[in-house]
Write a protein that binds this DNA or RNA. Sequence first.
DNA 1: GAAAGGTTAGACCACGTGGTCGAACTTTAT
DNA 2: ATAAAGTTCGACCACGTGGTCTAACCTTTC
Lengths: 210, 210
Amino acid sequence: MDDAKRASLMDAAMEEFAERGIESASYNKIIERSGLSKGTVYYYFENKDSLLLTVFNEICERFHSAIGDLELPDTKENYWSISQEYHSRAIRFFFENPLVWRVLFWISKDAPYMCGQLEPFRGKVMRFMDGLILRGREIGAVRRDIPPDTIQRLMYALGKVMTASIMEECEAERCKSRQRREEEQVKIEKFISTMHDLSKRILTPEGDLE
Amino acid sequence: MDDAKRASLMDAAMEEFAERGIESASYNKIIERSGLSKGTVYYYFENKDSLLLTVFNEICERFHSAIGDLELPDTKENYWSISQEYHSRAIRFFFENPLVWRVLFWISKDAPYMCGQLEPFRGKVMRFMDGLILRGREIGAVRRDIPPDTIQRLMYALGKVMTASIMEECEAERCKSRQRREEEQVKIEKFISTMHDLSKRILTPEGDLE
DNA sequence: GAAAGGTTAGACCACGTGGTCGAACTTTAT
DNA sequence: ATAAAGTTCGACCACGTGGTCTAACCTTTC
């Protein structure tokens, strides 16, 4: 498929998905937005799901390359600095790609709808985080009295709520008082440390609480 | 409207909402499920939204009367016992009304769709929790470095993830090994204390961490 | 008993949806 | 130059949706 066409289709899909969510997004509307014809789009993507798969894959790759390589920690002390670095990179990426953030936000909501088809791609985005938590358990940085998958969900929920809060706040500020970029950076800085504090509090095993 | 008819409509609506979520629920399907005719239902509820409003109101009342009256705490020590009592009652209620849990789950997802029309009713369910957090701030039981509404969202997310986890777990156990009710109670007991521990960790102000 | 008002039933409508299809156009291979 | 393959187009279809409307049916009132 022609690069320009592909790009305009991806953009249209991202916008539609971001605005209306995965389930509510209309394939017809996406096609309309892209400026391509129905025949063309259907020629390459038999339905909305297969298009979503491609969009999601692209998102995952962008995210993955934005995070770069981070090694799993091998000591407790190591754990927290790596965890913080990860949070830091992730939040910065989302700040620079708000559309991606919204699409992921919706995907995490509508997840059951795709019935696990997205799992392999989700893996790319989440593998590190999942692995981090498991490793944390092994080296004693993460509590063991809560099942790993519950911990994972907790951390995703934490990330989601906190990121949504800070993004909304900055969005609002930008609208009304067009705050300077540096101020925003300070806020993000503080946000990251709050995130870090929270995840540390939640994860630390009983005995290690100071 | 006839009581029996009203009840069958409410049941149908609850089921449909619980299964498919608020947005995806089909008013047509609800009507069909209820066994009533289109004319009848439209005679009382002009659209899906107004039906949802009624359903939600009923849920709120049930929840509210299940929780009963709890006073807001006036000391730090008081705070945690009341908070735990609230969690305990809420989780027990949801365990006894899984359908209600699912509907609320969806509503919290699809909330923006109703554009705040549900707010006054939500108030009934959440007022105590919201008030508790604010009071906690005042009496120094809850940290002040995170805005109250972010804290609230955090606590809802925490409750949602944790409740979902425990309910899924019990559901699964029930299916495969038909575990005894007492075992389940023990699990719930443990779950409540974990919830309590988590919320305490998250909320406690910096200086007060032991 | 008849008129009036409240209630019920379901045929009907317009619309947006996902999806198909054949004809036309473009590119490539022979 | 011609045939074949690849691509594009948009009219078209069946379906489920929210919602309307009239004719009939009760129930109450006079």
